[in-house]
Write a protein that binds this DNA or RNA. Sequence first.
DNA 1: AAAATCATTTGCCATTTGGCAAAAAGCGAT
DNA 2: ATCGCTTTTTGCCAAATGGCAAATGATTTT
Lengths: 189, 189
Amino acid sequence: MKEFIEYILQFGNLNPQQLALISSKATELTIKKDAYFSEAGKISQEVGFVVEGILRVCYYNNKGEEITKYFIDENNLVVDLESFDNQICSSAYVQALTDCKMIVFSRKDWLDLLHTIVGWETIVHKIISKVLRQKVERRSPLVTEDATTRYLMFLEIYPNVVNRIPLSYVASYLGITQSSLSRIRKNIR
Amino acid sequence: MKEFIEYILQFGNLNPQQLALISSKATELTIKKDAYFSEAGKISQEVGFVVEGILRVCYYNNKGEEITKYFIDENNLVVDLESFDNQICSSAYVQALTDCKMIVFSRKDWLDLLHTIVGWETIVHKIISKVLRQKVERRSPLVTEDATTRYLMFLEIYPNVVNRIPLSYVASYLGITQSSLSRIRKNIR
DNA sequence: AAAATCATTTGCCATTTGGCAAAAAGCGAT
DNA sequence: ATCGCTTTTTGCCAAATGGCAAATGATTTT
């Protein structure tokens, strides 16, 4: 919980009572490697925060290929905004790639807090805005770079991920085949 | 102005007085083709809305190549959030690709309105969230598709853009060369 | 330790895309 | 219609990446 408190205090100030109220609504959740935190076709009812572990967000494209859209590692928020805000079916899976420790807020509690705690709405909006901007800034440049550069970018963005998950997920994130990635790594060393 | 009012009313309700106040702060702006709405290295001081025309957001990558990150066409908001919110230097150029008619709010007026109009902050956050989500959803899938598919995706996302701007900008957006794009188009027809 | 399972690397060849430069096509001004 | 400029297409060949399958390496289970 400490981690989450630190995280939100980066975006604004809250007094101890407010923090206590927020904490009181948080639930601890552990997920085993390979299990899903949320699934496509379901409606998102939770906001999560990764205390330990790595997850990925993925989906299946037109050709049925499984695509990893991004990774989520420690001290990051996990929420499918489109589904959570509009209560429509999610189009993505969120899967644990390692055993994970998370804290979770139910949608009801989350919305209650938004109405109850003065200033919390502004903080949440700052957080969401930053999370979304980060997604754009991280993924967008990959489109126009060659495979080697994309891999180097991945290493910069997720320095703590590469040795903890299978190569195939990285390849899927970068839009190249696993064998190409393997050769690229050989050339870099 | 009508267009902007319609746009914001999609995200929440405002009464005529509130709309009038918002309108009173808006300035009309026309930009000639090829001119810049905002530039890298400067601090964003304006929120814009495209009434007519097409702009692009672009930057220069490590290799000095000019990359088009996305296009902005009619009835869309133009704001460099990172720069506008944090008052830091922008890292991107926003350039008109056709003559453009826009409406513009100064940062000061924009922030005043946020404080003055009850409910406006929530609407703005919904708008920003949607704009950012749209950027992710549009650009992210390009990473993992081949050039032909990327071009077809571009056509779906920006159906009114392709015939109004030079091919080279589209190629830059898709991360392929202009000649490859030309060949791809030949194969599709 | 051996077997079974999973992850990574490699070989071979096909396909896609890039690089460069020239030709062709389109467009506006005169 | 013609000139000058910009945009798009094409040709040629090189480089990058994909597809598939087998080999190697690592990890877990028995």
